[in-house]
């Protein structure tokens, strides 16, 4: 049995199956009471034949004349409620910063997933004459998406060809969604689709296919550039019109690519923010799995490094 076999088996022990209930006799009645309150509340909500609220009607009326947007939801996201979108974006940025901090690996790493590759670079630098061991080779094969002990099932040729075909279409669709702004939310769904493109490539073709893009030195500056554009739009609104996120760009003809003034630039920056934020969060989580080795709590079996304090 190899170490990798042990690692796989360790993951399959599913430790959470032992975690049981916490005072269900107390939680059950509490939830029923909350449910009764919710029922009373939802029965008093406006129904499908209620008049549209004044604020919604106002948004419909100003969408084209004030913001040059024929897509009213996008007008609200990047126009009327631009400040709220700003807060939401920086909440996402804050969450990404928290995920990065919590998932920080023990060793300095230029990629979110890829400690084995980092180890090879460090070994080449410190001790270039030492040959690569069998375990190290398996770890790197698994990391790069090649078949190995820890990744027994390689994606079939059907999946790989399908992904290679779909990825360009999805990438173009995501940019189109944000650029033309006819989709509710514009940059939000477009950013999620762009992150999905990277994840599809990673899942089908392995780490090696995305390692030149999904690394701290590339993704994090792009995310901060998107955030800078959003801040600059807000500040420009204050300086020019005395209102944060007031439109400062000329309004082009509705239904053209430059329609919406600020909104299109804001939407593009949101695409960048959402895409990079999701990529960082997901790959940070994937990289955390690599830190969990079966030997960590078994120090008696693993001799301490001789030069630990040197």
């Amino acid at each position: 049995m190899t170490n990798d076999d042990g690692l796989s088996r360790g993951f399959r022990q599913e430790p959470h199956v032992q975690a049981g209930w916490h005072r269900p006799w107390l939680g059950g009645p509490l939830v029923l009471a909350v449910g009764a309150l919710i029922l009373v509340g939802v029965l008093a909500l406006p129904r499908e034949n209620a008049a549209l609220p004044v604020i919604a009607r106002h948004a419909m009326e100003i969408a084209v004349p004030v913001w040059g947007q024929a897509e009213v939801v996008s007008e609200i996201v990047y126009g009327s409620r631009g400040f709220d979108t700003f807060g939401e974006t920086f909440l996402l940025l804050g969450a990404v910063a928290v995920v990065l901090t919590l998932s920080r690996p023990r060793e300095p790493r230029s990629e979110y997933v890829g400690e084995a590759s980092e180890g090879r670079a460090e070994q080449r630098r410190l001790d270039p004459d030492e040959p690569e061991s069998g375990d190290e080779r398996k770890a790197r094969q698994a990391e790069s998406g090649e078949e190995s002990e820890t990744r027994r099932i390689r994606m079939s040729v059907v999946v790989r060809v399908a992904v290679r075909t779909a990825v360009p279409l999805l990438a173009v669709a995501s940019v189109y969604t944000a650029a033309w702004g006819y989709t509710p939310g514009g940059g939000f769904p477009a950013g999620a689709a762009a992150a999905g493109v990277v994840l599809l490539v990673y899942a089908a073709l392995g780490h090696r296919a995305v390692r030149h893009v999904v690394r701290s030195a590339v993704v994090e500056p792009i995310e901060l550039a998107g955030a800078t554009v959003i801040v600059a739009l807000g500040v420009a609104g204050i300086v020019i019109h005395g209102s944060m996120f007031a439109n400062v760009l000329p309004l082009a003809q509705p239904l053209t690519i430059l329609a919406g003034g600020n909104a299109q630039l804001y939407s593009g920056a949101e695409l960048v923010e959402v895409a990079t934020g999701l990529i960082i969060a997901i790959f940070s989580l994937l990289g955390m799995g690599r830190d969990w080795t079966i030997h960590d709590d078994d120090s008696q079996q693993v001799p301490a490094p001789q030069d630990e304090d040197q």
């Binding site: 919604a56 939801v73 996201v77 909440l91 939310g185 989580l285």
Partner: peptide, 23 residues
């Protein structure tokens, strides 16, 4: 359209919160 916008906001915040809790 305002409530549809709220839904978009809720989705993004939900993703952020879930990512932090999963970490």
């Amino acid at each position: 359209p305002v409530l549809q916008n709220f839904c978009l906001t809720a989705i993004v915040i939900g993703i952020a919160v879930t990512a932090v809790f999963l970490t």
